[in-house]
Design a protein around this nucleic acid. Structure first.
Lengths: 145, 145
DNA sequence: TAAAAAGACTATAGAAGTAGTAGACTTTAT
DNA sequence: ATAAAGTCTACTACTTCTATAGTCTTTTTA
């Protein structure tokens, strides 16, 4: 299950994507509009900013805006920042590989092989779906390709 | 991430699958062999039994054995017993559908649409991979199709 | 240049979920 | 009758997730 943190992050990016072109959006406004607890959102935006996805400006007239094109921000990358690995077992993770506690022989592990397939299937969607795609799908029923 | 419960469940099913034909296997032996805490395994096996996947026999000479062919036990079903929904958001779940707290308009939700795609991709693997497949993959490098 | 408007950063608390343990009970074989 | 199993329920410890609080820094503008 996605954490709320991740859901909030995606929602915030979508909102900021729609806001592109306009002056930056303040945390408070974003929090109200998307119904996200303000201080929680604050942390999330910070993470996204430190990861290079957002631009922020302090002081009066400041706020947040996207630091990349909505079409260049992929869900897979966002999930990794907020929730960590995408794979369902650490030993099948591409970016957060770790040996499973329970596992003795990784090479022949049938579970691992299966969950590498799952990971690949998941990534095929998440690494190709951008914030722009999510926005596009909000309106029309179908998109992509 | 898969819970340990699920990993243990799969391991137990695989072990029992390999044991098919022989007399039933006792919890204690299974726990030792697979290095799973005994009492924890006990609960897991019970769940699997109540779901119809295992046959159990009490008393001396008792133990556990599979109640189905290894080829008829699919990972998707096991995961659902031990970890619940396979989808990453409740509103995209096939078997455990629930409205997301944060969501106002599910029909146009771009996030939901994307995660339905993810769910389908995941299920394409998990609903077609059986315990028999996992066992087969343990030995040879490739299997399936 | 002071005040106000914003974000940056750290710490902490409460809730929920996960992993594991304990113990008493039931059934069955010998 | 006894011992060898599984059944069932409750509980505890631990970790992670969600959220909140408070202080500090930067920037604008009157």
């Amino acid at each position: 299950m996605l954490s709320k943190k991740t859901k909030y992050a995606i929602k915030a990016l979508v909102a900021l994507g729609k806001n592109a072109g306009n002056p930056p959006m303040q945390i408070v406004r974003l929090a109200e509009q998307e119904m996200i607890p303000r201080k929680f959102l604050e942390q999330i935006l910070l993470d996204m900013r430190n990861a290079g996805y957002l631009y922020s400006k302090k002081g009066a007239g400041g706020g947040y805006s996207l630091n990349k094109e909505p079409g260049d921000i992929y869900l897979a990358d966002i999930l990794r920042i907020t929730d960590g690995p995408i794979a369902m077992v650490p030993c099948a993770s591409l970016k957060f590989y770790r040996k499973c506690d329970e596992c003795h022989d990784e090479i022949t592990c049938g579970i691992r092989k299966t969950f590498i397939d799952v990971r690949d299937a998941t990534l095929k969607v998440l690494a190709q779906t951008s914030i722009a795609d999510v926005i596009a799908r909000e309106t029309d029923g179908n998109f992509r390709e």
